[in-house]
């Protein structure tokens, strides 16, 4: 028995992969530089040494190839966990993800199951060059047949990744790369009661609901702490899954507070906030005291890193969104 341990999100993901590989010999890991190097973020560190090159594969530099062969391996009964090195490099694999991974189950009327996990380090805030800071969840959430989840803390990193690997549906698993080194207590023995696709109320409040996921959860919690000093009570919901969406948890909160601010790094235009706002408006219209507010990356490509702080929602912009919700 291992007691609760303090670890980073990165270490928790590594531990989750290790545990899943120990539990099921069909679990494989493949991607660029995941072997000897342990991945550019070291998420797969030491796994090749311990599980061998057949189970932890340094692939050729070709994302469509990585994705297509992962699907083939799944057809043969394996459970591949694919690492895409950075968010902006998933696009060569887009065709395989959208045309095959998402659709083979329905095309075959359920005969084919593809338990494939696609891990993507996502988001900005690390001072990187172009293509290394993207939030592309809306493309995948828009593709029915895929499920899309985000971890935001070490405990979720540890358990959600194992739940994703155990799921028989294909899952896009986003990791907030700028939070990789944030630490938290992880109880490695007690499985969570929450299933993979449920949202979690991470801070209770009564004035405004903040809905967020991935790297923005910490931003929203920080904002809620500052708001509390100013006498405002914010409820923070970590959505954890953006496809499917846990609407009951969100609706219960909005019925209580009457106000909703959705926060994400991706541009607002046709982003997750739009889907959430539409749904909440449909289901909670008479509880809403104000229109649903979105605080998001601006409607533009991700900028050069020197001004990324202007692009990304931060504590002040979240509080500004709260002000706008309360102005009604």
């Amino acid at each position: 028995m291992m007691a609760a341990q303090r670890m980073t999100i990165a270490k928790a993901l590594n531990a989750a992969l290790r545990k899943a590989m120990e539990a099921d010999p069909k679990v494989l890991v493949q991607g660029e530089d995941v072997g000897k190097l342990g991945g550019v973020f070291r998420i797969t560190e030491h796994l090749q040494k311990d599980f061998g090159e057949d189970r932890v594969m340094d692939t050729p530099l070709a994302e469509s190839g990585i994705m297509g062969t992962a699907i083939g391996l799944a057809l043969r009964g394996y459970r591949p966990v694919v690492e895409i090195q950075f968010d902006g490099f998933v696009y060569p694999a887009f065709d395989q993800i959208v045309s095959q991974l998402a659709k083979l189950h329905s095309r075959s009327r359920g005969a084919i199951k593809l338990p494939v996990v696609v891990r993507i380090p996502m988001g900005g805030g690390i001072g990187a060059v172009e293509h290394h800071s993207e939030s592309n969840e809306a493309y995948f959430a828009h593709t029915l047949g895929l499920k899309v989840v985000f971890c935001s803390n070490p405990t979720d990193a540890y358990w959600m990744l194992q739940q994703a690997i155990a799921s028989d549906d294909p899952i896009i698993f986003y990791e907030p790369k700028r939070r990789y080194h944030e630490k938290g207590e992880v109880d490695l023995d007690v499985p969570p009661t929450l299933d993979l696709f449920s949202a979690r109320v991470v801070r209770e409040g009564s004035d405004v609901t903040l809905a967020c996921y991935g790297p923005m959860v910490k931003t929203c919690l920080d904002a809620a702490a500052v708001a509390a000093e100013e006498g405002r009570s914010l409820e923070v919901i970590d959505l954890r899954s953006v496809s499917p969406l846990d609407m009951p948890t969100l609706e219960a909160s909005v019925r209580k507070t009457g106000r909703l601010v959705v926060v994400h790094e991706a541009s607002g235009y046709v982003g997750m906030g739009a889907e959430i706002a539409a749904r909440v408006t449909e289901s909670c219209f008479y509880s809403l005291e104000a229109p649903v507010i979105r605080v998001t990356g601006w409607n533009a490509p991700y900028p050069p890193s020197k001004i990324e702080e202007l692009f990304l929602p931060d504590l002040d912009r979240v509080l500004d969104g709260v002000d706008r919700a309360l102005a009604h």
Partner: peptide, 25 residues
């Protein structure tokens, strides 16, 4: 360092309403 307009300049050749709305915001 560049200014804030670096985010919105040259996203399109012709102006795009929602990009310009965000620039103003």
């Amino acid at each position: 360092d560049p200014g804030m307009d670096e985010i919105f300049d040259h996203v399109y050749v012709e102006p795009h309403a929602q990009v310009e709305q965000d620039r103003a915001a």
